[in-house]
């Protein structure tokens, strides 16, 4: 059970949108996290520094937020099986489909890209169905 939080959602979302906007406006890059991580492993070394800096910022940002009373989850309730299968699938799928919640869901939809709109609809629907199976049909198997 988590509490519905529309205001902090809107505010946090606006900050995320602003982050993506300045990255594209100043540097011409897409704030898609899976794409940024993928690019860190590519052989194109000229492209690595901005990606590494963005990732460092992404790791430090939550620490700044904790200074003013926001929190990272103190523990992850997932089982090791879920973490293993989920991690592999998230990496595989975002690489194959060229984007995740940020790249397709925010930057792509914000550009009115038909590819991103379709991808977002598909991964949201599939995730809802998956959660339905895991939480209501399979129970605690995973």
């Amino acid at each position: 059970m988590t509490e519905f939080s529309p205001l902090s959602g809107l505010l946090g979302g606006a900050i995320i949108g602003f982050s993506a906007a300045i990255l594209m406006l100043f540097r011409g890059r897409t704030a898609g996290i899976s794409g940024i991580v993928n690019g860190l492993m590519s052989k194109n070394t000229s492209d690595i520094s901005w990606r590494a800096l963005f990732i460092i910022g992404l790791i430090l940002g939550p620490l700044v937020a904790t200074l003013i009373d926001f929190e990272l989850p103190s523990r992850i309730d997932l089982s090791w099986q879920s973490v293993t299968i989920g991690g592999l699938l998230v990496g595989f799928g975002t690489n194959l489909g060229n984007g995740c919640t940020s790249g397709h869901g925010i930057c792509g939809i914000g550009r009115f890209s038909s590819r991103s709109i379709l991808a977002t609809i598909i991964f949201m629907l599939v995730a809802v169905i998956t959660v339905y199976f895991c939480q209501h049909l399979l129970g605690d198997i995973l």
Partner: peptide, 20 residues
Amino acid sequence: LILGAVFFGVGWGITGICPG
């Protein structure tokens, strides 16, 4: 694009964690 979104959706649904 479609297969990638499907695989990602399953992984996201199992864990509630996406790359960001």
